[in-house]
């Protein structure tokens, strides 16, 4: 598995020349200062979007320009000032997740917090909490729309599903344009600007963890979380695939993901699986853990365990 930025046959000189040409055209044709010329976007930004390279091939200067452009576009689109970051991965860190299904009670607090934190369209959820009969693990009979008066319901248990961040992710292999890849810290991320929306990755994912923006994300200005990351929760365009990214804007700054912070029962444990003193390592070494669909060989980094 290659985690290096992939080389490309793209002629960088030609691309830079044409990009400069586009900027020159924009500068020559736009009267006065930059203003909304097309689609609520300036022409220079439109051209810069057109020539934006793959995230792993961009130089630091290009990334800085792109982040500034993302902030400008969000300001035009939603009227809010966001901060788009590019926090790099930390050395010696591979994230893992463990979830105690004895403690999960199906409150769906994680689902709601994830939606609020990650600027999801309001008809999209990264986390599906499956309600299943005790003693069974039948996904066909799982109910993700349960709505009881109080939870947990009698005879049921709850199994939240989200992106497992597989170490050998089939979605990454399925992507025809390499718009999704595994970061060095183990997070499977998507470059939303490089995604062509073919949805092959959704078919390849065995966990139903990828979601498609069928329409414009259903967000209003007051609901925007201004703390964003390029590979994470920045505002998404229509027609791209997105997924859980372990709250990359938080975890790369040594904060817990939003689902862990919101969980009222303490069922969720997040940490560095390379650190022998971390909580997740204690769980993996001392608890009876299992992974979903482990036989597929995708090596998910999301474990389930139970008390006793």
């Amino acid at each position: 598995m290659s985690r290096k930025p992939s080389d490309s046959h793209i002629d960088h000189y030609r691309r830079r020349f044409l990009k400069g040409l586009g900027g020159a055209v924009a500068a020559a044709a736009t009267p006065g200062t930059a203003r909304a010329a097309w689609g609520g976007n300036t022409l220079a930004d439109t051209f810069a979007d057109l020539f934006q390279d793959h995230y792993q091939r961009m130089t630091p200067e290009e990334i800085a320009d792109t982040l500034a452009r993302i902030e400008r576009k969000a300001k035009r689109r939603y009227g809010t000032n966001i901060t788009c970051k590019n926090t790099p991965p930390q050395d010696g860190v591979v994230y893992g997740y463990a979830l105690n299904i004895s403690k999960c009670r199906g409150y769906r607090e994680c689902v709601s917090a994830c939606m609020l934190e990650n600027n999801l369209s309001r008809d999209m959820r990264y986390i599906q909490v499956l309600e299943m009969d005790n003693g069974s693990l039948n996904f066909e009979k799982a109910d993700r729309y349960y709505d009881h008066r109080t939870v947990p319901a009698k005879g049921k248990y709850y199994l939240p599903i989200q992106c497992m961040h597989c170490d050998d992710a089939p979605c990454v292999k399925a992507c025809p344009v390499e718009a999704t890849w595994t970061e060095p810290d183990g997070i499977v991320v998507v470059d939303y600007d490089w995604c062509i929306g073919c949805r092959y990755c959704m078919i390849a994912c065995p966990y139903e963890a990828r979601h498609f923006n069928w329409g414009k994300p259903d967000l209003t200005a007051g609901e925007i979380n201004p703390d964003t990351h390029f590979l994470g929760n920045r505002p998404r365009p229509t027609g791209v695939v997105e997924k859980c990214h372990f709250c990359i804007q938080r975890t790369r700054e040594n904060r817990q993901p939003a689902c862990q912070e919101a969980c009222p029962t303490g069922a969720r444990i997040f940490g560095n699986i390379l650190d022998p003193n971390s909580e997740i390592r204690y769980v993996l070494e001392n608890k009876a853990v299992f992974r979903l669909k482990e036989d597929l060989g995708t090596e998910p980094k999301f474990w389930y365990f139970h008390d006793n």
């Binding site: 586009g22 689609g39 022409l43 689109r77 229509t238």
Partner: peptide, 22 residues
Amino acid sequence: AFLLFTAPPAAADDWDMDWEDP
């Protein structure tokens, strides 16, 4: 680029002009 200028400007909130909303 010429076509871009001659095309009428779309709505201000139509930021992602790539896809049609169903």
